[in-house]
Design a protein around this nucleic acid. Structure first.
Lengths: 155, 155
DNA sequence: TTTCATGTAACTTCATATGTTTCGTGAGTG
DNA sequence: CACTCACGAAACATATGAAGTTACATGAAA
């Protein structure tokens, strides 16, 4: 299965934004992500609706963070993305008439459900602030203190 | 993401086969699953290679179980299918140069890895015999003792 | 008024599970 | 031997959804 990387992508964007005081344009973010500005706007739309980020048009416009990073978890971001599927597998049929399939669905369904809950719980444990702090630790270990996207990506 | 239902499908097939003493043809199984015989052969190929089932050509041929159901777990079946992706999400890039992305990957990657291990562990706890037993419990609760696919599916 | 940047719709591309057709091979039947 | 049955495998079609792209409208700042 092709894997959905929106969560990974949006976190990458957010952490970069956190390093900037001024709004960052979709185009700048897109370059850092080697993708298209429209893709950035698309994955940011949900976060804007939740008030986690804000966007401004015109000169000096772009995206900026509009929340306390220590209060937002990966789980919140996941929900802002619209709760995309976590698992690549699922039951063949829901509510089957076949008793055999009911047994299979019961066993697999419970395992799937628990695994999703497990993953969401993990997401809930990690705040954006924690991720940002981890990034700063890595940067110090590298001995640098770059302030802009280009430097971070060039490192 | 569209979900992979091969594991669900192959378990359904196996449990049906367990109810038969004689080989069951791909066509019969396909009808029960509302799919194509070729699809059945495709998902069964891995199990045959592992020796879990065997196939015979010609008159009276078809598929039959070639192992002790109590010794095979859902995890074994999963491996026989070729270890398809369990998660619908993944990191945007592996081994990124960007330190921000390294932090994101580390956090998400660990959560993904643990969730996969969790799910595989669950699979390992359930044997085919347990699934079959659950099916028989459901059948008794329904008050019937059907011996063939058609009856089971018609119920 | 010009430029910049987002908002949105529509389209293309790509990967992959699933479905289908076709032909070959071997096993049992008459 | 000829026929039928059933699997094996390749080739092709279909469907879904993420990701990438293009085009145009809207609004803000210079």
């Amino acid at each position: 299965m092709k894997r959905d990387s929106r969560l990974s992508g949006v976190l990458h964007v957010l952490l970069h934004m956190a390093e900037h005081r001024h709004p960052v344009t979709s185009e700048t973010l897109a370059k850092a992500m080697t993708t298209n500005p429209v893709v950035i706007r698309r994955i940011m739309a949900g976060l804007r609706d939740q008030g986690y980020v804000q966007s401004e048009k015109g000169h000096g416009g772009g995206w900026s963070i509009a929340c306390d990073l220590s209060k937002i978890s990966l789980r919140d971001i996941y929900h802002a993305l619209g709760n995309p599927s976590l698992l690549a597998m699922g039951n063949r049929t829901e509510a089957p008439g076949c008793l055999v399939e009911q047994s299979v669905n019961a066993a697999l369904g419970k395992a799937f459900e628990d695994a999703e809950a497990f993953l969401l719980a993990r997401f809930g444990e990690v705040t954006l602030a924690a991720l940002s702090a981890d990034f700063h630790r890595r940067m110090l270990a590298r001995g640098g203190t770059p302030q802009d996207l280009e430097t971070i990506h060039a490192s």
